[in-house]
Nucleic acid binder design. Structure first.
Length: 595
DNA sequence: GGGCCGAGCCAC
DNA sequence: AAACGTGGCTCGGCCC
């Protein structure tokens, strides 16, 4: 097959479209699907072409035609659709043509990500064509001038060729990927990711509503606080700066840029203080009013820049909502990542989160897994003490403290519990004694003693962590409960940083099965919840997920029913992965994003 | 004036 | 600053 000179038919005639659609529908064979448009935004794009390829021939449909017949082809769950980055095509087809590509999607991009996580991030069609077929695609998108094509409707042979090739090469790429997926035992997790595509696409399409006035009120308060703090700092420092800058209007210009670490170091030098860095930890220990003020300034400034007008600017002109980009396999552990804007890093402070609201007449159902990563660590390590605590529904941190300090649970005070909690969480990151000592404000020796006592109680936690850490280095990969893999690059023993890099891989090896299995679980739940909401025809939409949390916007009168449904499905998903430790899910009906 | 990188900091 | 896993955003500062 010559993929660069593909066999295609360009269809601009309605009768021919209907005829071809009927034929494909009758054959029920696998199809490659791709689209061309003049942009990337499903709500703004002008759809130009839809390519549907059988293994031998590509049909290119002009998007001006009526797609009713194609809709039944693309929505038929018996027909497998092969796409590169299916989320995009799904979103555009739904927004422009009302077509919801049913289940049975194969995504070459996600497949490639599963096969190479940790090694490379080359998932573009250009890279895949080169890797699997040795073909150099012409991906100079701009040179095709699709904008102009959209305006004039003039489709050149070069355009059609490009469009056909993109669809046709998906077949052989999938074939080679499938062999690797079977070889690496990734079938289960691949099926999960493929069934998740339409869920993620719908989350993005629906978007999140934000109360703009409330958001701005919050910003105004922060601005006031920031400005007065900045003024205080500048006044404190003024005596130490010889040159006072005054502008034409008589305003005193700032003597230093508070956002510049190097300038801040310089300012503290004038105060007779040498800072090793201007990070939070150092400033907290620095005994000078300017240090405290600077921390306060930083807090305001961070919130104002990262979560200020910039975020509001991303509200969509057509929908009036935020439509962030959810990267389905964003993190190497399998977790989602999110951007433009990243709604996974909105401050937990209710002054921010409460600005995310359901539309009038709707409610939120907010659900999250309780202590899921610790439960996973208990399950995987099979530690009897740890597992037992969850089975009995005990407060794990209090229990840990009681055992570490050798006192009955009633005698555990806040500090003891905090220390135990720090260890419980820290271990999942491969945390060591020096780091723990830093956080708890104790000596490294005392910190070592605490860890020793901890591991004396939870012996299997320690042996499991050590085991998976070492295995990551030895085998070159980690695995989650559902079989997801994360590979590690081979390290060079001659590298002066070799030991450090080994330690890093060990820590990743400890964390990845935990974090990755948690991602598996939330993804299973997302698929199950989405399918039930659809099947049972609720007026309800998944709109967000933050690692162990799920948000649904639901018509108010259905909130109770969806509350029950979500809890059921999240627990069911959890029980598919954990068998020795119970799952606990917190679900709430609310008028804003809160727990 | 754009690209890149590190510092710093928000989330889980 | 580094002692702890996974990300993204903004800034200063440097380069071309």
């Amino acid at each position: 097959m010559n993929y660069l000179e593909p066999n295609y038919e360009y269809i601009t005639d309605q009768a021919r479209l209907d005829e071809v659609a009927e034929n494909i529908l009758a054959r029920e064979t696998d199809l490659a699907v791709d689209i061309e448009g003049d942009g990337l935004d499903p709500y703004l794009i002008k759809l130009l072409l839809v390519q549907i390829g059988t293994a031998e021939k590509v049909y290119i449909f002009n998007a001006k035609l009526k797609f009713d017949r194609l809709k039944s082809v693309l929505e038929n769950p018996k027909i497998k659709k092969i796409l590169q980055n299916a989320k995009f095509d799904y979103g555009v087809l739904k927004a422009t043509k009302g077509i919801e590509m049913g289940g049975n999607i194969y995504d070459t991009m996600l497949a490639e990500r599963l096969l190479t996580i940790g090694l490379v991030r080359e998932n573009s069609l250009l890279a895949l064509a080169d890797k699997y077929l040795g073909i150099k695609l012409d991906k100079n998108w701009e040179s095709y001038n699709w904008d102009q094509t959209a305006r004039t409707g003039k489709m050149t042979k070069r355009h059609l060729n490009y469009a056909a090739t993109d669809a046709l090469i998906l077949f052989p790429i999938r074939e080679k990927q499938m062999a690797a997926i079977a070889r690496e035992d990734l079938t289960r997790v691949a099926d999960l990711e493929f069934s998740l595509v339409q869920v993620v696409a719908n989350i993005e399409l629906k978007g999140s509503l934000i109360d703009v006035r409330k958001w701005r009120d919050n910003l105004d308060q922060l601005k006031t606080r920031r400005d007065s703090t900045a003024l205080q700092i500048q006044e404190e420092l003024r005596p130490f700066y010889k040159i006072k800058q005054v502008d034409l209007f008589g305003n005193h210009a700032d003597v230093l840029n508070l956002n510049s670490p190097s300038q801040v170091i310089g300012a503290f030098e004038k105060l007779g203080i040498d800072l090793p860095s201007t990070g939070e930890a150092i400033l907290q220990k620095t005994n000078h009013p300017v240090a405290k003020l600077l921390l306060q300034y930083r807090e305001c400034e961070k919130l104002l820049t990262a979560f200020g007008e910039n975020l509001l600017a991303k509200i969509h002109p057509k929908t009036g909502r935020l439509h962030p980009d959810f990267m389905q396999i964003g993190a190497d552990t399998g977790r989602f990542a999110c951007s433009n804007p990243n709604l996974q890093q909105i401050p937990t402070d209710s002054s921010f989160r409460s600005c995310f609201v359901p539309a009038p007449g709707y409610k939120f159902v907010v659900a999250d897994y309780s202590q899921i990563e610790l439960r996973i660590m208990a399950e995987l390590s099979e530690d009897p003490e740890f597992t037992d605590a969850f089975k009995k529904g005990e407060d794990l941190h209090t229990k840990t403290a009681s055992q570490m300090y050798g006192v009955p649970t009633e005698m555990v005070d806040k500090k003891m519990r905090f220390n135990a909690k720090s260890i419980n969480f820290g271990l999942m990151y491969g945390r060591g004694a020096p780091s723990l000592a830093g956080q708890l404000g104790i000596s490294v020796e005392d910190s070592e003693k605490l860890l020793e006592k901890y591991f004396n109680t939870y012996k299997k936690v320690k042996s499991w962590l050590d085991k998976v850490g070492k295995e990551a280095v030895k085998k070159g990969y980690s695995k989650t409960i559902s079989g997801r893999k994360r590979w590690y690059k081979e390290l060079d023993p001659g590298d002066p940083l070799y030991q450090r890099m080994i330690s890093h891989t060990e820590r990743q090896g400890k964390n990845t099965p935990i974090q990755g299995s948690s991602a598996d679980m939330t993804k299973l739940a997302l698929v199950a919840v989405h399918q039930r909401l659809n099947k049972e025809k609720y007026d309800a939409f998944l709109i967000h997920t933050v690692h162990d949390e799920i948000l649904i916007e639901v018509r108010a009168d259905q909130a109770e029913a969806v509350h029950t449904l979500v809890k059921e499905e999240m627990i069911r998903a959890g029980e598919k992965l954990l068998h020795k430790v119970p799952i606990q899910v917190e679900v709430k009906i609310a008028d804003a994003w809160e727990h």
